[in-house]
Design a protein around this nucleic acid. Structure first.
Length: 609
RNA sequence: GUGCCCGUAGCUCAGCUGGAUAGAGCACAAGCCUUCUAAGCUUGGGGUCGCAGGUUCGAAUCCUGCCGGGCACGCCA
């Protein structure tokens, strides 16, 4: 259900028919034949490059092919006009009746309109957010969160089977820092004066409740426990609490993941996990399910992944060259366990083990992606922040290596968000703990504005987020503009109830839609299914936001025509037939805007008050 | 120094995965309007698509080299 595909097929069929009578067209490769909407609407509804693309292969002039093709296409009565133009384009204009029929089809599909099967049920794992479990989310995380969540919605709409994943970085140094910070708050809760939070620990107030909770439950018990045991307890307890915070933050933006995957589990085998099973259970991670998938119960996932790479002869011990140009101060040659990332397009081979023998973050991430693949996700998407750009090549290299090229990883990098208040940039410093949290932003402007604005820009372009602008009720604010279009339609439909009680748009005679602006809105809506498909295939949810804005804009334009000419209003008193036809049109628009907003995760308001 | 991303109107950005005379909003200028929901409408000026080559019927889009900006750069996560 994508009219561009339908009519492209029509062109291909016509070409096949011509092959019977024109030997020079035989055996031509048709892949490059496209059908698209010309930029200039006066050129028609569609235009195909077939004649130009085939010219060389067939050894015919574009014009010659075009004339033949035009003749064939003219037999289809849905075309009002078929003509050759420019260097050999064939411009196709469909009849107004065809478009009215398209509107009827859109209405018949209702909320299923735009749903696509192009994903063919392919399983795709989308990993996004994956903020360290060391505190609440700040605005820096927000863009990736919204991007990933919307991409998931979009790909589901396009027929993919999506898993929304959060990778909990609950292993490594930052968890240790978290544990020590929480312990300090625990001592504070017991009445000790802890003074300033030392450099290197997390200063935020959000750890105070954690300290208090432990103090209330266990009293002073942990003061006398050996440090190792204490750290482990505080780490586990704090991570679980922090994940609760983070999940709440995400929920405020209507983001809910399907899977929370623990990094820490990747370092355990079936035996060593037993003493800390409570931790994983509290985290909401199903270890039974996890280990039931694993081939070798004696190996951790990291060991298994490294082993798998070793078997492919992709691991060696070596010394890396120092980076050319800027030499790190403390550089010294070191033998390391390295993965041959250069064989898969990376710039250097990458370390898998630290000098103390423990594995690197990269090694865990390899194991994690290995696990995704084994779960059946041959298509993986990672959403990272701009500062992780340098990580992309090694990760795609690792996926290619581990899956023998069967797995595909696309890493989407979200650029920074610049917060503006009254035109001034809001300064943030992580060190002082003075950062704006996600929750603060959502509480101030609401989830709809946050979500829409985060998507109203390509992911790889930086983004300005202006507190004043996103809550402004004006045309300058795209969130408002789109929601307002939807609300306006709802309002008209309510008013129509008064003018024509009990009306049914199902009985509307669409032939009464005659105005060119009305027909162009149908054309715009007819492009929606293709919009969903391309945006999903390209992993570019921002296209949906722009489309929604375009459609809203076209609708507002139609509305404004009614201001100038009362005959063009949606509700024309005393003319029930015309009114019904127009109500059918705007009901379809309402449906498409609502579909777009649903993908974006933005509420479709019934009224704007 | 190397890699990745970006460079499009005065500003903020789109550009449908190579198509025709490159678009929108803001700002600017002129005129109109006071509403089926007010948060307006119409029209106009404004461009070396960073620069230079290349690929081809055709390039903002693909390739190469420069210029400029951001990010990253052996065990952090």
């Amino acid at each position: 259900m994508n009219i561009f595909n339908d009519f492209r097929q029509e062109v291909l069929t016509a070409l096949e028919g011509l092959q019977a009578t024109e030997p020079r067209l035989k055996g031509c490769e048709m892949l490059a034949v496209t059908l698209e909407a010309p930029r200039d609407p006066s050129h028609g509804d569609f235009s195909t490059n077939a004649a130009m693309v085939l010219s060389k292969q067939a050894g015919m002039k574009p014009r010659e092919i075009a004339d033949l093709l035009c003749g064939a296409l003219r037999r289809d009565s849905r075309f009002e006009k078929v003509e050759v133009a420019g260097p050999g384009f064939i411009n196709l204009r469909l009849t107004a009746d065809f478009w009215r029929g398209a509107l009827a089809a859109i209405l018949a599909d209702a909320d299923q309109y735009g749903v696509s099967k192009i994903g063919a049920g392919i399983r795709v794992s989308i990993e996004y957010v994956s903020a360290n479990p060391t505190g609440p989310m700040h605005v820096g995380h927000t863009r990736g969160a919204v991007f990933g969540d919307t991409l998931a919605n979009l790909m589901e709409k396009a027929g993919y089977q999506v898993c929304r994943e959060y990778y909990i970085n609950d292993a490594g140094g930052q968890v240790d820092v978290l544990a020590r910070s929480a312990y300090l708050r625990y001592r504070e809760a017991l009445g000790e004066d802890i003074g300033e939070i030392p450099e290197g620990l997390y200063p935020g107030d959000y750890l105070k409740p954690v300290g208090r909770a432990i103090a209330a439950r266990d009293g002073g018990k942990w003061l006398s426990e050996p440090e190792e045991k204490r750290i482990e307890f505080f780490a586990n307890f704090a991570v679980i609490e922090m994940m609760k915070l983070i999940k709440d933050d995400l929920r405020s933006l209507n983001i809910v993941h399907d899977t929370f995957f623990s990094e820490r589990i990747l370092h355990h085998n079936a035996e060593s996990v037993k003493p800390i099973q409570d931790y994983f259970r509290d985290l909401g991670f199903d270890t039974d399910d996890y280990f039931s998938r694993r081939g070798d119960p004696d190996k951790s996932a990291v060991e298994a992944a490294v082993h798998a790479l070793k078997q492919k002869d992709l691991i060696y011990n070596g010394v890396l060259e120092p980076p050319k140009g800027k030499l790190p101060d403390d550089w010294e040659p070191r033998p390391q366990t390295l993965f041959r990332a250069t064989q898969f397009g990376d710039d250097v081979d990458r370390a898998l083990k630290k000098s103390d023998g423990s594995s690197t973050y990269f090694a865990s991430d390899i194991a994690y992606h290995h696990d995704k693949f084994r779960r059946g996700y041959s298509h993986m998407i990672d959403v990272f922040g701009a500062d992780h750009g340098g990580y992309v090549k090694r990760m795609t290299a690792a996926v290619a290596a581990l899956t023998g090229g069967k797995g595909v990883l696309d890493v989407k990098i979200c650029q920074l968000v610049r917060l503006l208040r009254n035109g001034e940039q809001v300064k943030m410093s992580k060190r002082s703990g003075n950062f704006v949290t996600l929750r603060e932003v959502v509480d101030e402007v609401g989830p709809d504005a946050v979500r829409f604005m985060m998507l109203y820009r390509k992911n790889d372009a930086p983004l300005d987020f202006d507190f004043a602008k996103v809550t402004e009720q004006s045309r300058d604010n795209p969130v408002f503009y789109v929601q307002y279009a939807h609300a306006r339609i709802c309002s008209v439909l309510r008013n129509a109830q008064d003018a024509f009680p009990g009306f049914l748009t199902e009985t509307a005679d669409l032939l009464l839609l005659r105005d060119e602006t009305e027909l162009s809105l149908i054309r715009l809506m007819a492009a929606w299914p293709r919009m969903v498909e391309t945006a999903a295939q390209m992993h570019e949810p921002h296209r949906i936001a722009f489309y929604a804005h375009d459609l809203a804009s076209a609708f507002h334009g139609l509305w404004n025509k009614g201001n100038d000419d009362p005959q063009l209003r949606f509700i024309v008193s005393g003319q029930k037939d015309v009114t019904l036809a127009r109500l059918a049109l705007i009901r379809a628009i309402k449906g498409v805007i609502a579909s777009a907003l649903a993908i974006l995760g933005v509420a479709a308001q019934e009224e704007m008050r």
